[in-house]
Design a protein around this nucleic acid. Structure first.
Lengths: 226, 226
DNA sequence: GTCTATATGTAGATAGAC
DNA sequence: GTCTATCTACATATAGAC
C-alpha cells in the first residue's frame, strides 16, 4: 500500500467533457461494487463491466485498485464534512443553548439525508463508509477523511459536559457512530423490504434518542458512594 | 453458495488423534486469517501456510472455502450461546428483580471475557463475528448462529418494559450489539497500544452504561404533549 | 490422511496501436 | 483517452500415488 490518497496530477490541459463523464462513471461503478462486495471481492474487470468501459480504462483513470478505492471514498468525504460542519455551526449560532440532540442531528442528518435523497449512489457510499471504518487496512484513509470532523463534534459535545473527561465523550461518540453505521448498513435495508417502512426522519429521531441517552450516561459516571 | 452450515458426515471410524489436531490447526489458522483479512482477502494457500499443512489438506478438512468459513464461525457459536443463555438464566434466578444492566452483562460478558482471557484465538473470533454481522453475504449464517440467542435476550429486556413495543426494544438491542462489536474490533485494539490500557471489566462497565441508557430511552418514548 | 502434481480460471497491471 | 492483446502471478479445486 503506497499511497492512500492519490493526489491529482498537474494536467497540461483540462480533460474533455467525455473524459470527465467516463471518470465519473468509473467512480460510480466502483462505489457500487466496492460497497456491495468489499475491496477484495470486487475486481477491476467487474468495475469496467459495470461502468461500460474497458478494464484498462479503469486502471488509467483510477491509478490502480487501491488508489481507485481511496479515490472513491475521498470523493464524497469533503462534501459530507462540509455539510456536517455547517449544520453544526448553524446549531451553535441559533438562539438558545446548544443541545446534545442538536449536535448529534448535525452529524447524523447529512449522512442519512444524502443516503436517502440522493438515490442508490449515496446509499452505496454509506455502506462503503461502514466497510472502511471496520477494517484496519484503511486506517490511514479514515484518519484523513473522517477523524478531523469527528474531533470537532467531540469537542462540541464535551462543551456540554464540562466535568466529564474528553475520553469518556469520545467513547460515547464512537459507539454512536457504530450505531449510525448499523442503521445505514443493515436495519435500513431490512426495514425497507417490510410492510410499513418508516420515514428517514423517524429513524433519525430514534437513533438520536438512543445515542443522546448513551452519551449522557457515559459522560456522567455515577459517584462511587463508599 | 450451496451449504452454509456443513453437516458432519457419518464416519466409518473415529478420526485419529493426529487428524483431529490437524483439523483444529486448520480451523484456528482459518479463524485468524479470515478475521484479519476477511473472506475474499484470505486464500486457501495462506491458511495452509499458517497452519503448516498442504493446500489440499485444507480442502480435505474444510470442504471448500465457503464451507470452511461457515465451519469456523459455527464452531464457537454454540459455546458462546450456551455461556450467554446460562448467564441470563443465572441472572433471572437470582434473588431480587432482573435489571437491564444484568441482562446486558449476561450478553456482553461471555463474549468479552472469552476474547480477553482465551488469548488471540478468541479475539480473532470476535473480529470474525463483526465481519459476518456486517456482510449480507452471511445472512443465513448469522440467522442460524446468533439470532435465536438474541431473541431470548430481547424477550428478557422486553419483560422490563411492558409498555414498550418489542420493535423498539429490538432497535436498541441492535444498536447495542453494534457498539459491542465496535469495542471488540477497533477501540480495544487501539487502547491496547496506549499508555494505560483499561481492564476488560472497565470496558464492559462503560459499554453497559451506554447501552442501558440508550435502550431505556428507546423503550420509553416521550409522550407527545400537544 | 497426507503428499505431489496439475487442471482451469481469473486476478491486477501494462505495452502499444489508434 | 480509448481500445486490443498479452504478461505474470495466484486463485480454487481435484486426481492419484503413498
Amino acid at each position: 500500500m503506497k499511497l492512500q490518497i492519490p493526489q491529482e496530477k498537474q494536467r497540461q490541459r483540462a480533460p474533455s467533457k467525455r473524459a470527465l463523464e467516463t471518470k465519473r462513471a468509473i467512480l460510480d461503478a466502483a462505489e457500487r461494487l466496492f460497497a456491495a462486495r468489499g475491496f477484495d471481492g470486487t475486481s477491476i474487470r467487474d468495475i469496467g463491466k459495470e461502468a461500460g468501459v474497458q478494464t484498462s480504462l479503469v486502471h488509467h483513470h483510477g491509478g490502480g485498485k487501491e488508489a481507485l478505492f481511496a479515490r472513491v471514498v475521498a470523493r464524497r468525504a469533503d462534501e459530507l464534512s462540509i455539510a456536517r460542519l455547517s449544520a453544526l455551526a448553524a446549531h451553535n449560532h441559533q438562539r438558545g443553548p446548544a443541545t446534545l440532540e442538536g449536535i448529534l442531528a448535525a452529524f447524523f442528518g447529512p449522512y442519512l439525508e444524502k443516503a436517502e435523497a440522493a438515490g442508490p449512489q449515496w446509499h452505496a457510499y454509506a455502506r462503503l463508509v461502514a466497510i472502511v471504518s471496520a477494517d484496519p487496512q484503511w486506517k490511514n484513509l479514515t484518519e484523513r477523511c473522517f477523524d478531523p470532523t469527528a474531533g470537532h463534534f467531540i469537542d462540541a459535545i464535551a462543551g456540554l459536559f464540562p466535568h466529564a473527561s474528553r475520553d469518556d465523550i469520545a467513547v460515547g461518540f464512537v459507539y454512536s457512530v457504530s450505531a449510525m453505521l448499523a442503521l445505514a448498513t443493515s436495519r435500513w435495508r431490512v426495514s425497507a423490504l417490510g410492510n410499513n417502512p418508516k420515514d428517514m426522519a423517524d429513524y433519525l429521531d430514534e437513533l438520536i434518542r438512543f445515542c443522546a441517552a448513551g452519551i449522557t450516561a457515559a459522560a456522567t459516571p455515577p459517584k462511587n458512594a463508599p
